[in-house]
């Protein structure tokens, strides 16, 4: 800190500034930064039995986590879920957002409807879908005249859960796209119209590049969101479900170890692996941003 004396105005600002940020900063340190460090520490400990303290065990937890097939299977399941949810959720939302840019009757009704899943508790949404997917009594099998084990066949269940994810997220992505589309100046389209460019042509040459910052933002938030999926999985996949191993996400696995089995050291190690994984993905995305995103 410089030895220069502060003017009275600077001094006032310093006092008020620190006064105003203190609650938030204290909160962040106690509720977030200390817990983050503590989780990493616990990952190196064996969870003590009732009342007894944690015992430092070095890399033992990481060793078991990283050599367990279950961990890698869950990571792979999570990636598979993301491969369905992220692209489908984004492409469908983009199409809807573009269509809703036109002058149409009932535009607001459509928008309201598509956004509806966003204000519903995922727990309720998952319950309904589980019932739709019910093999014996569900609407889907009875309507399509099929006998598909939507959520208990290991080869299908991950797709079924992914579809719920897509259905839930379309409205959110769409609203962000609509906001992004409104920022594109109308004259670009008018000029293209005069040159006789078709609608599809305009979409790929004007909309896609000028919308790329919005698209990138959505891709990034959705990838991270999909990699930490929990609610849908937890509600749809019972502990007794035959497809559980081939479907459960890494956060579900974390929840099971840390809270159902109370093996916090092992759970902490899982979550540290997840965070490292997400950091790597974020880093790659940042690199890609410079190449793919077009900023005016």
């Amino acid at each position: 800190m410089g030895k220069k004396k502060m003017t009275p105005s600077q001094k006032r600002q310093a006092i008020w500034g620190w006064l105003f940020i203190t609650p938030t900063m204290l909160g962040l340190i106690i509720l977030n930064f200390y817990p983050a460090v503590n989780t990493v520490y616990q990952a190196f400990c064996k969870t003590g039995d009732f009342g007894k303290g944690n015992v430092f065990v070095g890399f033992k937890n990481f060793q078991s986590v990283l050599t367990s097939g279950e961990t890698w299977q869950s990571l792979w399941n999570t990636v598979k879920y993301a491969i369905i949810e992220v692209p489908l959720g984004i492409v469908i939302a983009l199409v809807l957002a573009v269509l809703l840019q036109k002058k149409l009757a009932g535009k607001t009704i459509f928008r309201t409807l598509f956004f509806l899943p966003m204000v519903c508790a995922p727990a309720a949404v998952a319950m309904v879908w589980k019932w739709l997917y019910n093999q014996q009594f569900g609407l889907l099998n009875n309507l399509l005249n099929t006998d598909i084990a939507w959520i208990s066949d290991p080869d299908i269940a991950w797709i079924s859960v992914g579809i719920i994810g897509v259905w839930s997220i379309i409205g959110y992505n769409m609203v962000l796209f609509i906001a992004g589309l409104q920022e594109i100046p109308k004259d670009y389209y008018e000029a293209a119209e005069i040159d006789g460019a078709s609608g599809l042509n305009q979409f790929f040459n004007i909309t896609v590049p000028l919308l790329s910052p919005t698209t990138f933002f959505i891709v990034q938030t959705r990838i991270i969101g999909a990699l930490t999926v929990f609610d849908l999985m937890f509600m749809v996949m019972d502990k007794t479900n035959l497809a559980l191993n081939k479907t459960q996400s890494i956060v579900y696995l974390f929840y099971t170890y840390a809270f159902t089995n109370s093996n916090r050291g092992y759970g902490a190690a899982i979550v540290v692996v997840l965070v490292v994984f997400i950091m790597i993905v974020t880093f790659i995305l940042q690199k890609l941003e410079k190449k793919l995103v077009f900023y005016n």
Binding site: M1, Q13, A14, W16, G17, W18, I21, T24, M25, L28, L31, N32, F33, Y34, P35, A36, N38, T39, V40, Q42, I224, T228, V251, F254, A258, R264, G267, A268, V271, V272, L274, V275, I278, T282
Partner: peptide
């Protein structure tokens, strides 16, 4: 105020950390 940049970078860092890492503690 002094320390503003450092404190704000803590805010930004928190936003980048997946919240699952906070839950056990």
């Amino acid at each position: 105020f002094p320390g503003k940049k450092l404190m704000f970078s803590l805010v930004l860092i928190q936003m980048m950390i997946p919240s699952q890492i906070f839950i056990i503690p």
